[in-house]
Design a protein around this nucleic acid. Structure first.
Length: 261
DNA sequence: ATGGTTGCAGAGCAA
């Protein structure tokens, strides 16, 4: 089972880029972030015609997540549990069953800038809620893949120019500690685990501004965390870097894991 | 150096 995550930064603007990538990726499950669309205007028929089952959790203008799957999507949860008053659409869960059942949690963690301020407070609170949900998912003792745009740079080696991010919500010590608090529950950072000694990247995001892509001034903020039962099944991971050089690209590229499931 | 670019939506915000 190949499971991917792609922050597409607008489904309407990226329908061709996403369709082209899907055609070559051979993925079974794809979580999307920043669809920037309500459920009613998501181009559902376009992807259904290509053989995808679709579950969306949209929002007008901003945010919005979705799951595409070749296999049926079961037991769908929309929204991160723990705050019924949270209006932002950043989280969706579903179960996909191949050779065995895998729980998929697709997420778009808040950016948090500017710091300090209410947006950073929301980021930290949201990450703490994610930690509580992650603990519940681990307790199920099943293969779980929690993946998406975490908007956190784990370490200095995950940025081409870490000094530029020192004061940024994506790299502040509190942000990185909040992510570690989740990872240390027992999750495997799949990209890092398959390339543990890398001193640079791999990067998953290059800003539209300042020619970041041409300078390879990237960061690693799209992550895939595997429960122990999923890590046992890990076969391969990848970062589809070439997508950033395509026609009308997103500022993120797809990341993926292949499990023997 | 307080810029720079993009998407959604149709002005200004979010990233």
């Amino acid at each position: 089972m190949k499971i991917a995550s792609f922050n597409i930064n607008g489904i309407k603007a990226r329908i061709n880029a996403l369709t082209d990538w899907l055609a070559g990726a051979d993925a079974d499950v794809v979580v999307l972030q920043e669809i920037k669309s309500v459920d009613e205007t998501f181009p559902r028929a376009h992807f259904e015609d290509l053989g995808w089952n679709i579950e969306t959790h949209g929002q007008k203008g901003f945010n919005g997540v979705a799951i595409l799957s070749k296999l049926p999507l079961e037991d769908v949860i929309r929204g991160l549990p723990g705050d019924d008053g949270d209006e932002q659409s950043r989280y969706i869960e579903a179960t996909v069953t191949g050779a065995q059942a895998v729980r998929i949690a697709g997420l778009y963690l808040p950016n948090g800038n500017p710091v300090p301020g209410p947006k950073y407070d929301y980021k930290l609170a949201w990450t703490e809620r994610l930690r509580l949900r992650a603990q519940e998912l681990l307790a199920a003792e099943m293969p779980v893949v929690m993946l998406g745009d975490f908007n956190i740079i784990p370490e200095a080696r995950d940025a081409a120019s870490p000094e530029k991010w020192r004061e940024d919500a994506l790299f502040l010590p509190q942000s990185r500690a909040a992510l570690r608090r989740i990872v240390w529950q027992g999750w495997t950072d799949a990209i890092r685990a398959r390339d543990p000694w890398s001193t640079r990247g791999p990067f998953t995001f290059w800003d539209f501004q300042g020619g970041a892509w041409n300078k390879d001034d990237g960061i690693r903020i799209d992550h895939m965390l595997l429960s122990p039962q999923a890590a046992d099944l890990l076969e391969e991971t990848g970062v589809d870097r070439e997508a950033r050089a395509g026609e009308k690209p997103s500022d993120h590229v797809p990341v993926w894991v292949r499990l023997s499931a």
